[in-house]
Amino acid sequence: MSDTTHLLIPYAASASPGCQQALQGLALPHLDRLLARLSPHPAQSDSGEETTFSAPHERALARALGLPAQDGRIPWAAWHRHQQGQPADGAAWAFVTPCQWQVSTDHVTLRDPEHLALDEAASRALLAIVSPWFAEDGITLHYDQPTRWLARSPLFALLATASLERVLLRDVRAWMPDAREARTLHRLHSEMQMLLYTHAFNDERTARGLPVINSFWVHGTGPLPVPAPTSATAPTVPTTLRGAALNEDWRAWAAAWTALDAGPVADLLRKAEGGTPVLLTLCGERNTLAFHTAPRTLAQRFQSLFRPQRFAELREKL
């Protein structure tokens, strides 16, 4: 598949009534023409539920890169280190994202960390505050970027965790790792909330009108397989639908789809029409549907002419 141009589209559809309504008036001519040329690729498709820890596009991307695609155990943190040229040493790594849990009467919502206005200096200061607590439980933290740290511990070897995108703006209680397997993390969550509740770090943020940081989220857990996957050509993964879908802004989502159809999808169509092998992967909240360039029988060609496959017929399958 190394010579195949692969376009992987996350958040292509949702079961949300608002999304289904937006889809009714959505015209995607290039996508429909592309689907009419391509054949289903069952080997690259999969099915799941909205409650899986790993979103469909994460599972699809893991498969494309040759990574393990077990639910909640895609080793994104270890892969990130590997891509940076740092040895994984067979160790289990995880991402740790400092965040705010907004507590209400019946919800504990994880706010988008990108809205916390964390810069590198503040993130490193917070890391220095919490690192000793994690170290007592054998978890070593390393700075990676303002809203994401790296963590190393045997605890992450087999622990399934929900990806950050699954839990954003949702009730965290439905996405917590198994209490029996993650007793340490559950306790650390409680300790961090108590530590940060009255800490000067948050007092200063409050004085500046910034959101407080009172918790963290662990994701991307696991070790890389040995040997690590060889370098594969990563698919193109546009993120333009993500923000609107997570915020359920379906008008903005439809506008983003229109732009996507006129841009990357139209480019892929031109390549397919020019004879380049292509792979299109559409990902919703539950399932993945893949389509590729493949020889078709005469009957299939006639069918595509008189009853071409269109996105409107596929959206409910995602």
Rank of each mutant, 00 (worst) to 15 (best):
R148N: 03
H189Y: 03
S153C: 10
H186T: 03
L116Y: 11
L126K: 10
V130P: 12
T147V: 11
P177M: 06
R148H: 05
L116P: 07
D119M: 07
L188N: 01
V108E: 06
D119E: 09
V130Y: 09
Y143M: 07
L150P: 10
L126D: 13
W175F: 15
F201L: 04
R183D: 14
P146D: 08
F201N: 02
D171I: 11
L159E: 06
L159I: 13
L159R: 11
S163K: 01
R148C: 12
A182H: 10
D137H: 15
L141Q: 03
R180D: 14
V108I: 15
Q193A: 14
R180C: 09
R180E: 15
H107P: 02
W133Y: 15
A135R: 14
A157N: 06
R124C: 07
T198C: 05
E114N: 07
P132D: 07
E191D: 15
V172H: 02
S163T: 06
A151K: 01
F134C: 07
L196W: 13
T184K: 04
R111H: 12
R173I: 04
A151S: 02
P177T: 00
M194P: 00
S163N: 04
E165F: 06
R173W: 11
V130W: 08
V108Y: 01
T184H: 02
R173V: 09
A179Q: 15
S123L: 08
T147Y: 08
